[in-house]
Amino acid sequence: MAAATKEKPATSRKLRRYQLGGYRFISPAVIMMVALIIYPMIYGVYLSFYNTNLVNKWKFVGLKYYLQAFTQSEFYTSVLLTFLFMILVVAGHFIIGFILASVLNKKFVGRTIFRVIFMLPWLFPETVIALLFTWIMNPMYGVLNSILKSLGIISSNISWLGSAQLAFPSVVAVCIWKGYPLVMTMILSGLQGISSDLYEAARIDGANKWKQFLNVTVPGLKPVLTTTIILDSVWWFKQYTLVYTMTGGGPGTATDLISLNIYGTAFNDLRFGKAAAWGIIVFVICYLISKVYRMVLKDE
């Protein structure tokens, strides 16, 4: 009896040491998350209540900047432009990604090589892609104008990024090219998870290709599509690097996405409180986007 009593505390101490070991392993990651994610978010909320330049100006304004966001046309214009940008880019990703994934899901010689080639845009840093296409679209020595002129499509050089009408679609096209590999890879993994027996059963039941797509492919891809569309939409709604490097938000306000607007407010106008408030609103918008997608694409 006494031996059993002594054994129990020893086992309990060993269990506590085992649990403490687990906490020690995860503590570096937790500390990094607190330092790099949680603390900046809390500090951003704190800043949003002040009119401050972070140096010698700290004036409490409460909810002023949040209320201004819903009364200023500048905010609405920038958010609507960002929504349009997100919709076009995500739609382009899914159209191209689905077509390429369907092709790469078939068996043919050199399939692995083509998979690597089509993944390349996602592997390059956004700054490199932006600078590359800035040179390609240069109105004086850009290769795009040279190719189009040699094909007889245009007669004179076009300023793709300097025109208020062409800058936005040009940036959208580059962002589609940069981001489609993620969607392609996710859809390809989903297609490979659908059993060929389901397609065979559908063919036996007399289903044509379109009905097989609607009744077999789409339901099989639904979990993958839900995750992918949420990640892709939120990522491109808050896009900054590509657009800023290519156009800086110009010409005028043609590509002035909300992320660029917030950056300019903070680091050009030194109105960090207003920028923080608008950043918090964008965070809420991104959360609502994911919430709406989950509601629409939920499993019946």
Rank of each mutant, 00 (worst) to 15 (best):
A69Q: 05
S170G: 00
W58L: 14
I31Y: 11
G62A: 10
H93Y: 13
M186V: 15
P121S: 03
I136Y: 13
A277V: 04
I262C: 03
S73C: 08
V282D: 02
D197A: 10
M33K: 03
L191E: 08
N215Y: 12
M184K: 09
F114T: 03
C175D: 13
K59L: 10
A130R: 06
G97N: 03
N51H: 15
Q212M: 15
L63A: 14
F283N: 06
I96N: 00
P181E: 04
R203V: 10
F267D: 12
Q165H: 10
I204Y: 10
G193K: 06
K274E: 13
P219S: 06
F168D: 05
F85M: 03
A254E: 13
I230W: 05
M32D: 06
K59R: 14
H93M: 15
V296Q: 07
W278K: 11
L104S: 08
L84K: 15
I153Y: 07
T227W: 09
T253D: 10
N105F: 04
F25K: 05
G162L: 10
G162Y: 09
S150I: 00
I281F: 07
L15I: 11
S146M: 15
T52M: 08
D269W: 10
T241K: 05
L161M: 03
W235F: 14
A164V: 14
I99C: 03
Y293Q: 05
P223M: 09
F124T: 12
Y180K: 07
K14P: 03
I37F: 14
L15G: 01
F133A: 04
L20N: 08
V55M: 10
G264E: 14
K149L: 05
L148M: 07
I229H: 01
Y46S: 09
S27Q: 06
Y263H: 06
T217R: 02
F94V: 05
A201W: 00
Y18Q: 14
T255K: 02
T255F: 06
I158M: 11
G193D: 04
L151S: 00
F283P: 06
A275C: 05
S155Q: 15
G22T: 08
I31T: 12
I87D: 02
P125A: 03
T185Y: 14
L20R: 08
R271F: 11
A164Q: 11
I229P: 00
I204P: 11
A173W: 00
D197G: 04
L198M: 12
N215H: 15
I96L: 13
N138L: 03
A167K: 02
V34G: 05
M184A: 08
P121R: 00
S163L: 10
I176C: 05
A266I: 01
V284G: 09
S290E: 01
S196N: 12
M32S: 10
E126R: 10
V216A: 10
R16M: 08
P181S: 06
V183F: 01
V103N: 02
F85T: 02
